[in-house]
Simulated assay, not measured.
Amino acid sequence: MYRRALVTGAISVAVAAAAPGTASPRKIGMSDVGRLQEKIAAIIASDHKRGGQRDIEQQAAALADTALNLQNSGSATQRVRSSLYATAAGFRSSAMWAAIDGRRFKEAIAHMREAQTLAELSGDQAIKFRIWSHAGTLYRHMGRPADAHAANDVARTLHITRRDPMFASLGMARQMAIQGVSHEVRSLPRIFDRAHEAMLRANPNDFRPVWLLAFWDEAELHSLALSAHLAAGDWPTAEYHAHRCLASLRPHMQRSRAIATSRLAQAQLAQGDADTATYTAMNVNSEAAIQHPRVSRMLQEFGAALRATAPGGVNARTWTEHTAAWRAPA
């Protein structure tokens, strides 16, 4: 009897172990989240080097899906789940930014909607700010300044902007760029000063997400001021901010350098200095000039304006030869 009971018990244990759904679920922890978040830095580095590329967008979107799949792979605390949603939202917002930078606006809107949902599920103020701030930039590039204002206002009213002046600074600077598109010239210097003051007031030792630390500084503040004054037709002030931006850009900001240089050339040409403008435009990195959609478009506009200013002139010929060399086979 004893032996029969022992065998029966052993079989029962084996059957229970083999039954589906009875095994203990995997425990997801912050270490799992941390390993996924380590990939954010690589996405951001690729963006600063060669932003706007479709493969960056696709990689970021795939990592967002990876974060969501991890949600469903086991049990987790509320803190871990919130962090996973924030991580997924961060990757999705990087995909959104790559699409904006590549002027793929339909795709950017789809990423934005997904990112907004994930950000709400996370409750993370920093990622909410990033997504709504990106939304303002998206609508600005689409020529919809009213929507850009509204989206950026959502970012600026989040309580993180009251807690950390660095976020407040970025929100004001992007408002400045939007008002430039709306030709609200008189308010631009005041907004610039307020954004700069907030940046200086921020505690450099406060914890901030890697996406903010990687780009937001005085150089980028001047870059947004350059964009604002260029859109508003204030060429001398645009040129001033371009020089300030280029003088302080960090070495890894290669995409930003190409954009600022292209805008500087436009501002110089608009002031009638075709010689200097042509020289400036020729300093844009050839890889960015060919592969980055925003840079390519600005340089095409520059070439058209240069030829309209002095058709058949030496600068127009020099520029035509220079751009032909970009596309020449190796």
Rank of each mutant, 00 (worst) to 15 (best):
Y2Q: 15
R3E: 15
A16I: 15
A17H: 11
K39I: 02
I43P: 01
H48N: 07
I56A: 09
Q58F: 05
L68C: 12
N72V: 07
N72K: 13
S75R: 15
S82I: 00
A89R: 08
F91C: 06
A95K: 01
A98H: 01
R104D: 02
I109F: 04
A110F: 00
G123E: 05
G123R: 06
D124L: 05
Q125K: 12
R130I: 03
A135E: 15
R144A: 02
A151Q: 06
A155N: 04
T157F: 04
R163E: 12
M166W: 08
A177Q: 05
G180S: 09
R186G: 03
L188D: 04
E197M: 12
M199N: 11
D206C: 04
W211V: 11
W211I: 13
A214F: 04
H222S: 09
H229G: 04
L230D: 09
A232C: 02
W235N: 10
T237I: 15
H243I: 07
R257K: 12
G272W: 10
G272D: 08
G272L: 07
D275I: 10
T278H: 01
Y279H: 10
M282H: 01
M282D: 00
I290L: 02
I290C: 00
M298C: 03
M298N: 14
N315H: 13
E321C: 04
T323S: 09
A328S: 13
